[in-house]
């Protein structure tokens, strides 16, 4: 009986440790090493969201390429910007915020220029398509 209680307690403890480390404290998704769900040009991505703001690309990893117009360096977050339109918030297009470890590499970029990148699509806010946790696409 004692042995059974010990085994059940050990299993319970193991389950608790598993839940704590792998469920409650599970790490954020590693988007850099996640293969893209879709590959297209930056312009195609923008046009598709403008045509259908409820496009189901939200939450997906998308790889895009195209000519970016500027690089914004704000609060140690670097955003590569593709511009395709003008509206109430100024230029509109695709805004791609990179994982900070690529900052040094990105600060050497000369705008405008070609780039290929992938990132997590958090959606279309009515002016821009937002990609986050971006990394250069090989």
């Amino acid at each position: 009986m004692k042995k059974l209680i010990l085994i059940i307690s050990a299993l319970g403890l193991a389950a608790g440790i598993y839940v704590w480390f792998y469920v409650y404290n599970k790490p954020h998704t590693d988007y850099e090493n996640k293969p893209p769900d879709y590959i297209m040009t930056a312009k195609e991505l923008y046009d598709r969201f403008v045509e259908n703001p409820n496009l189901n690309y939200t939450g997906k990893v998308i790889q895009i390429n195209g000519v970016f117009q500027s690089v914004e360096d704000d609060d140690s977050l670097i955003t590569v910007v593709f511009v395709f339109n003008e509206g109430m918030f100024g230029s509109e297009g695709v805004r791609c915020t990179f994982i900070p470890r690529f900052n040094e590499q990105l600060r050497k970029l000369k705008a405008p220029g070609p780039i290929s990148l992938k990132g997590f699509c958090s959606g279309y806010n009515g002016t821009d398509v937002i990609l986050e946790h971006c990394s250069p696409a090989n």
Partner: peptide, 9 residues
């Protein structure tokens, strides 16, 4: 004044 906020961000 206008604010637009993507929830997934």
């Amino acid at each position: 004044i206008v604010f637009k906020v993507l929830m997934k961000s």
